[in-house]
Simulated scan of single mutants.
Amino acid sequence: MWIPWMMILPAIMIRCLTTLYPVIMTFVNSFRNMDVIKGGQGEFIGLQNYLKLFSDDKIGTSMEFTIMFTVISMIFHLLLGVALAMMLNMKFKGKKFLRTIVLIPWAMPMIVAGRAARWGFNGTYGFVNDLIARVINGFHFDWLVNADTARIAVIIVDLWKDIPFFAILVLASLQYISADVYEAAKIDGAGVFRTFFSITVPNIAKTVMSISIFFTMWRVTNFELVYAMTSGGPHDSTSVLSYRILIEAFNNLNLGYASAIAVVLFIIMLILSGVNTLAMKKVSD
């Protein structure tokens, strides 16, 4: 019985080294003074890093936008993703070609998409203003200078990039629904909405809930888009918690405080995972 364990022991040790050790050290460092600029030597300081979170306005702003970004993005992922999947599941000429090209935004690296969006939403030479100016003469707006519109722009780019992949995953679930079921519903006189809510939704609910868990986690931990598109500005209005960790650790060289933020983010992810798991169990029942 020891042979199988001996065979997988190297893989387990590597996994522990690359996963468990960094997680444990993050928790440990969150209780230490590791502010390199101020001469921190890694001494134990208790809950000071965590208490600092409550008085840090930048953390409050980052928390606010993280929640806003995640909730709004996931709502539109569900609505638009399912709608796009339904469209791609229809029978029409060229649907295979459309299914291919629809994944192009998702295949683009997030850094590239963020940099392109930064140029596109530029108030002076961006193509977004140019397109609107073709309809509204003389239109000009600095999208990334205003806090509210900068947040909207970040969410729009995130949706543009990831909804196609979400839709393709839902499409895979739709294709497992037998066409005979829809034919039977049509014969029984069920309309479009009745068919959708009585047949389509129950059959894709488990898949949608499963992929929603992963997409929610990706939204919470996503910092590349903010880093490339707005650098957290203006005035930290588009800064998410994961981006704040990056700034504190590598710009401010305060590894202890960055670790405390990372622990808070870890707890938020655990809560979201628990909520999604409970929701998935109810759907399964």
Rank of each mutant, 00 (worst) to 15 (best):
A167P: 08
I168F: 06
D142S: 13
I132D: 01
F121C: 10
W119P: 02
H140M: 14
N146F: 02
G191E: 10
V128Y: 05
W119N: 09
A190I: 10
G123W: 01
A117V: 03
A153P: 02
D142I: 02
Y176R: 14
V201A: 10
I156L: 07
L171S: 06
A184E: 10
I163L: 03
A107C: 13
M209Q: 12
G120E: 05
N146C: 08
N129I: 07
A205C: 13
N122E: 12
F121M: 11
G191H: 06
V170F: 03
L144Q: 08
N203K: 14
V170P: 02
F121H: 05
V192S: 01
I187G: 03
V154W: 02
G189M: 05
M110P: 06
V145I: 15
F196N: 02
I101N: 05
A133C: 09
A107P: 04
A147G: 01
A113N: 09
V135I: 11
D162M: 08
A153R: 02
I136A: 10
N129V: 00
D188E: 11
S178M: 03
N146H: 13
R151Q: 15
I104C: 10
N122L: 08
G126D: 02
I211G: 04
L171H: 00
A117L: 03
F196C: 06
F121S: 12
S198I: 09
F197I: 15
A190S: 12
R151M: 12
R134D: 14
A147H: 00
I104Q: 12
A172K: 07
T200D: 05
A133P: 00
A117F: 04
V192C: 00
T200A: 03
F165A: 13
W119T: 14
T124D: 15
A113M: 15
A184G: 13
F141L: 12
N146M: 04
V135H: 13
I156P: 11
R118D: 11
L174W: 00
L174C: 06
V128M: 09
L174D: 10
V170L: 12
I204D: 00
A179Q: 11
V170T: 02
P164F: 09
W106S: 10
A113P: 08
L174K: 08
